[in-house]
Amino acid sequence: MKVDIGREIQQSAEETAGKIRGLLAARNVFSVNLISSPGSGKTTLIEKAIEALRGRIRIAVVEGDMETDIDAARIRRHGVQVHQINTRSSCHIPPFLLLSALDHLDLDAADLLFVENVGNLVCPAEVPLGEDLRVVALSVAEGDEKPLKYPLVFKTSDLLVITKTDLLPYVKFDTDRVKTAARAVNPRVEVFEVSSYTGSGLSSFLERIEELCRRKIG
């Protein structure tokens, strides 16, 4: 006997993401889901944001890694609220773990929540975390074919940050090729080119984050 179902598969993830979205809306917090491969510079970008926006935007951070609290310790040195999630065998932060992580943060004392996902260009793209903004970072050392190989994360992100541009003289990376490929799957994606090492391009990226944050929290 045939039974018609017609249900989206990740409905339970969507429901939990909806709860996260509602909680963050009630506390007036703007959230950013930051996704990239391991080693693209996500944690460093967050550290730069904390320093650049200090005194204007109160930042809180949830760090996701399979193991250790190395990243949380780095963030904690900047004097902001941080909670570390260890996903153990999971290759992404599942929504239920983020929801319980939020219990450890004083959201009334935060304007902007950075969620640093597990380093991975594949699985985090599938999983909604109730975020206001999805940012994918791609370092020039990873190669310019990534949007072709991993289209979903580029399709679902609002901002693409090309990182480590100070390494461009030493690697084969065609920035235009990346932009063309990313825009083919996602015409609305905004692209930024930054170097956390030299500081190049950071201010325009962080100004955009601040602008989008203020648009929500007022």
């Binding site: 006997m1 045939k2 039974v3 018609d4 179902i5 017609g6 249900r7 989206e8 598969i9 990740q10 289209p151 979903l152 399709k155 063309t180 083919a184 799957v185 015409p187």
Partner: peptide
């Protein structure tokens, strides 16, 4: 190069068969 990808991200259960 200006073509746009508009679809291809579905993930749903359509139906199933159970014993009569």
């Amino acid at each position: 190069p200006t073509a746009r990808v508009e679809r291809g991200d579905a993930m749903r259960i359509l139906s199933m068969e159970i014993d009569d």
